[in-house]
């Protein structure tokens, strides 16, 4: 292997998509504002956003399934429309659907041919992939007889079939049972171990939190934030957790609006960060013994909801002002 210069796996350079909607009199509908995003080599990148945010639109643009109104992208250092790129990427569409007259083996065989997997390797590779996605005993069963989750597994299988350097998953967990989710998480971890880049969209934030090196939050076709999960969640002016001994709660602390839980011999109070000093002073005055003061880490979910709510209100005020 020749040493390659480190380059981003995906560079999205202002991709923009405006659909024309309406049957007779077309109105423009902007699904994606000019989007800029960079995904580094070897990371698991989460693409988060509520329904209709533009996640699928972005992935379809990158796959060349729809064409952008403007902008471009580079994938693995090449122009994204370059056919050579396609051999090195895998794609799982949202709610995947396949030729239902084929069996899983035939489908994967066909896709392996299209992806240029050498004939000798195919059989072995197909078995391996089917095992990886947890599909057993499907020999000779046509895909029309597959359940939703089984199809999802086939979809993941076909995306990694040709051992791509970069995979795109559109909601990989949807339709999967708890075991399946676990397996797909492990699979993504494993891909990362193998040095692959994973770019996936989801609204299941716990998955993102557990897996992603970095995430982007997209809303109404616009990226609100990009960053490591840790940075995002700790960057919020959060709350602190103050714990002291005893069962007494001073009135001044109550007055600050703290949420207090009394356990056997401890009090746990959660309150706004800005009242931290006031609380410590109060404890000192009452001669209560302070055990700990820790910032409460916001979950990604809290952050996400907060961020979206904020976006809604600013968008609303802009719309109202216009």
């Amino acid at each position: 292997m020749s040493p390659e210069p480190i380059m981003p796996s995906i560079e999205i350079l202002g991709l923009e998509k405006t659909y024309q909607v309406g049957f007779w009199r077309k109105r423009p509908k902007q699904a994606l504002r000019p989007l800029h995003l960079q995904v580094e080599d070897g990371e698991i990148f989460g693409f988060l956003g509520p329904n209709g945010a533009g996640k699928t639109t972005t992935l379809k643009l990158l796959m060349g399934l729809i064409f952008p109104t403007s902008g471009s992208a580079r994938i693995l250092g090449r122009e994204w429309t370059d056919p050579a790129v396609k051999a090195q990427i895998g794609f799982l569409p949202e709610q995947p659907y396949f030729y239902d007259y084929l069996t899983a083996h035939e489908l994967l065989e066909y896709y392996a041919q299209l992806s240029g997997v050498p004939g000798k390797l195919r059989r072995q590779r197909i078995e391996q992939v089917l095992h990886q996605v947890g599909l057993r005993d499907v020999q000779g069963v046509q895909l029309r007889k597959f359940s939703k989750g089984m199809l999802q597994r086939v979809g993941i299988g076909q995306a990694i079939l040709h051992d791509p350097k970069l995979v795109f998953f559109d909601e990989p967990m949807s339709g999967l049972d708890p075991m399946g989710r676990r397996e797909v998480r492990d699979l993504m971890e494993q891909l990362k171990q193998e040095g692959k880049t994973v770019f996936f969209s989801t609204h299941i934030l716990s998955d993102a939190e557990a897996l992603c090196d970095r995430v982007a939050i997209i809303h109404k076709g616009e990226v609100l934030r990009v960053g490591a999960v840790d940075d995002l969640t700790s960057s919020v002016r959060g709350k602190v957790e103050v714990i002291w001994q005893g069962s007494q709660i001073p009135a001044s602390i109550k007055a600050l609006g703290a949420e207090c839980h009394v356990t056997a011999d401890m009090v746990r109070a959660i309150l706004d960060e800005k009242h931290q000093d006031a609380v410590i002073d109060a404890l000192r005055r009452e001669r209560l013994r302070l055990v700990s003061v820790t910032p409460v880490r916001t979950s990604l979910e809290t952050y996400f909801v907060e961020k979206l709510r904020h976006a809604e209100t600013t968008a609303g005020s802009i719309a109202g002002g216009a």
Partner: peptide, 8 residues
């Protein structure tokens, strides 16, 4: 989708 996202 899964055909055209390959080198086709």
């Amino acid at each position: 989708y899964t055909v055209l996202s390959r080198p086709v």
